[in-house]
Structure formats: C-alpha cells, structure tokens
Amino acid sequence: MDIKNLFVSAWQHTVTFIGPVLLVTFVQMVLIVVSLGVLAPVTTAGYVQSLLLAVREGRPPEIKDLFSQMKLFFPLLLLFIALAIVIFIGFSFLVLPGFVAAGFVAFAAFYLLPLMTDQGLGVLDALKKSWEIAVRPPITDHVIVAIVYVAIMSLGGSLPFAFLLTQPLATFIQVAAYQERVALPEKRETPQPMSAPPPPPPETGNEIREKSE
C-alpha cells in the first residue's frame, strides 16, 4: 500500500467534494448533539458508507446517506456503549490502561464500519474480519494509517469547527485504506510440495539370478 498516494488521494477527494461533505458533516454533528449522542454510531456508519461510495463511484455525499444504515442502530449503539465502558474503566484505574484500551480499539476495529456497511457483516464477524485485515502484512502500513487517522480526528476535536475538515479527511483515509487492505491476499500456510519417492535400490546379482530361474 502506497501510504503517500493514499493520503494524497484522501485530500483530493476532500477538496473535490468539499461542498457536499461540509454540509453532511455539519448536519451529522447537529444530529449527534440534538440526540445527545444516541445517533452518533448509526449516522457515522452512514457517513462512512457515503464517503466510500464517493471514492468508489464518484458520487457526492448526501444528507440522506446519514440515515442509510438505520438497520444497524441497535447493534452499533450497544457496541459503542460496550467499547466506551471498557475505555472508561481503563481510564478510571490508571491513565495508561485507558490509552492502551483506546489504542487497541482503534487498531483492531478500524475497518469495522466499512465492513458492516459495505459487506453487510454482523458486529462479531466485522470485528473478526477487521482484525484479520489489520494484521495482514505489511502491518506497519495499517499502524501508520490508524495513527494518522486518530491524530487528525483528535485535531478536529481540539479546534473550533475544525471537525468540518478533519472528519471527512480522516474518513476518506479510512475508506481508502479499507479498499486497499481488503484487497490484500489473506495470510495462508503455503503447502510444502511433496517430495518424489526415492528410487528403488539396484538389484543385486542374486536377485537377478532368482528372477531368471
């Protein structure tokens, strides 16, 4: 995976769809605030799928896309609550375990939403598949992409209205990485070729005489 081209492509898609993507990003944030976060998981799933289609088909994101994955409302809500509890417990004991838990979630579940929206996988199957994609070699590519994604999203949360630009940029990076990583061959054990049986030992003089008799 060409990391540089992936980041350049994500930026180009952000610029290309800047108008529609700013509007969809703003509307999603309003929905999250109004719903007190309840709509965050399912609208994020719709948001991710919308930007994935923008990359794949050149289709501008639309507001209605945010509601395109409502069938995943309860599974995603329960999953996000469970993950939030795990991370909260980690931070409540010590800061380091909280960061470890958050980092592991970012690493292992990075492709969860694209797998659920694009391939129709359930939560558990998507988690398993996301982990398999994450650890496919070269694993360093995935680590770099995940770190950059988290850094961009963190930057968006620390500056007023920066999320309008950082969220679509980070999501374009996510879906572009998803498309490339999911196309990589799975790591399989290479079967060892069967060696030819050794040739029979040469016949001795006695064996030749016995056959002639």
Score class of each variant (00 low, 15 high):
Val48Ala: 07
Arg136Val: 00
Pro200Arg: 06
Val100His: 04
Val86Tyr: 05
Leu36Met: 14
Met153Pro: 09
Val143Arg: 08
Gly90Leu: 02
Val105Cys: 09
Leu159Glu: 05
Tyr47Lys: 02
Asp141Ala: 13
Asp141Glu: 11
Val150Arg: 02
Leu77Met: 07
Phe26Ser: 09
Gly98Phe: 03
Phe26Glu: 04
Thr140Tyr: 13
Pro137Ser: 09
Ala10Lys: 02
Leu53Gly: 05
Ala162Thr: 09
Leu112Ser: 08
Asp118Gln: 15
Tyr149Cys: 11
Tyr178Trp: 12
Thr117Gly: 05
Tyr149Glu: 12
Phe91Val: 00
Val143Trp: 11
Ala108Met: 13
Phe163Lys: 09
Gln174Leu: 15
Arg59Phe: 01
Val100Arg: 00
Leu66Glu: 12
Leu76Gln: 03
Pro197Phe: 04
Val42Asn: 00
Lys64Asp: 13
Phe107Leu: 15
Met194Asp: 13
Ser212Tyr: 10
Val175Gly: 05
Val38Phe: 03
Gln12Gly: 11
Tyr111Asn: 00
Val95Thr: 10
Pro75Tyr: 06
Ile3Leu: 15
Pro138Trp: 00
Leu83Thr: 06
Tyr47Trp: 14
Val34His: 03
Lys187Asp: 07
Val55Trp: 04
Gly37Arg: 04
Gln167Ile: 09
Trp11Val: 12
Met1Thr: 12
Ala54Glu: 06
Glu210Asp: 13
Met116Thr: 00
Leu83Met: 14
Pro114Trp: 12
Leu112Gly: 01
Pro193Ile: 01
Gly19Tyr: 12
Glu189Cys: 04
Leu53Pro: 03
Phe163Arg: 03
Val21Ala: 01
Phe7His: 07
Val95Pro: 11
Arg188Met: 11
Glu213Lys: 15
Val33Lys: 10
Ile3His: 13
Pro137Glu: 08
Gly156Phe: 10
Gln167Pro: 07
Asn5Ala: 14
Ile147Lys: 08
Pro41Cys: 03
Gly157Tyr: 01
Pro168Ile: 06
Phe67His: 01
Leu112Met: 11
Gln174Pro: 01
Lys71Ile: 08
Leu78Asp: 08
Pro168Gly: 06
Ala177His: 09
Val175Ile: 00
Val8Leu: 15
Arg136Ala: 02
Gln167Phe: 11
Phe91Asp: 09
Leu121His: 13
Lys211His: 11
Tyr111His: 06
Pro197Thr: 10
Leu52Tyr: 14
Pro20Val: 03
Leu169Val: 08
Phe99Gln: 09
Leu94Glu: 01
Glu180Ala: 10
Ile3Met: 14
Met70Cys: 11
Met116Ala: 05
Val145Leu: 07
Lys129Asn: 04
Gly19Ser: 05
Ala102Cys: 06
Phe107Tyr: 07
Ala170Trp: 07
Tyr178Ser: 08
Pro199Asn: 00
Ala109Lys: 10
Asp118Thr: 09
Ala82Lys: 08
Ala45Ser: 08
Lys71Cys: 03
Val15Arg: 10
Val42Ile: 05
Asn5Gly: 13
Ala82Trp: 00
Val105Phe: 07
Val105Ser: 14
Pro61Thr: 08
Phe17Arg: 09
Pro197Asn: 02
Ser68His: 03
Lys64His: 10
Val15Gly: 02
Lys4Tyr: 12
Gln12Ile: 05
Leu51Asp: 02
His142Met: 04
Ile18Asn: 07
Thr140Met: 15
Asp141Asn: 15
Ile87Ala: 12
Ala109Tyr: 14
Thr14Trp: 10
